[in-house]
Simulated assay, not measured.
Amino acid sequence: MSMPYVLAIVVLVGLLCLLDLLLTLAVIRRLREHTKLIDALYEVVGAGGLPASSGGTAVGEIVGEFDAMTVDGSRVTRDLLPGGTVVAFLSPDCNGCREQLPELVSWAAGQDRSRVLAVVDGRSGDPAHIVTALSPVASVILEDADGPVADAFKVTAFPSFFQVSEGGKVLARAPRVSRLPAGSPA
Rank of each mutant, 00 (worst) to 15 (best):
G56Q: 02
K36H: 11
Y42F: 00
R113T: 07
D126A: 14
V13H: 05
N95T: 04
D151F: 09
M3F: 15
S160P: 10
V164S: 05
D93V: 02
M69N: 13
T24M: 12
V11W: 13
G110N: 10
T57P: 07
P185F: 13
I62P: 03
S184P: 05
P102F: 02
D72W: 12
V59E: 10
L117G: 01
G49A: 09
L16G: 14
R30C: 15
A133Y: 07
G110C: 11
S106Y: 04
G110L: 04
L21V: 11
G168V: 10
F89N: 03
A186N: 06
A108T: 07
M3A: 15
L12E: 11
S74W: 06
I9L: 14
S184W: 10
L50K: 06
I28R: 12
R29L: 10
A88S: 08
S114A: 09
A109Q: 12
V116S: 06
V120H: 08
A8E: 15
S114W: 06
Q111E: 03
L171W: 00
V59P: 09
V63M: 04
G48D: 06
M69Y: 08
R179W: 13
L41H: 11
G147F: 01
C94M: 05
G110S: 05
L31P: 09
K154R: 09
L21Q: 04
F153M: 06
V27M: 12
V87R: 01
L7A: 04
I62G: 02
V120D: 02
V27Q: 09
S91V: 04
S139M: 05
L50W: 03
G60P: 03
F158R: 00
D93R: 13
G49M: 03
G96T: 04
V44N: 12
V87E: 02
G64W: 06
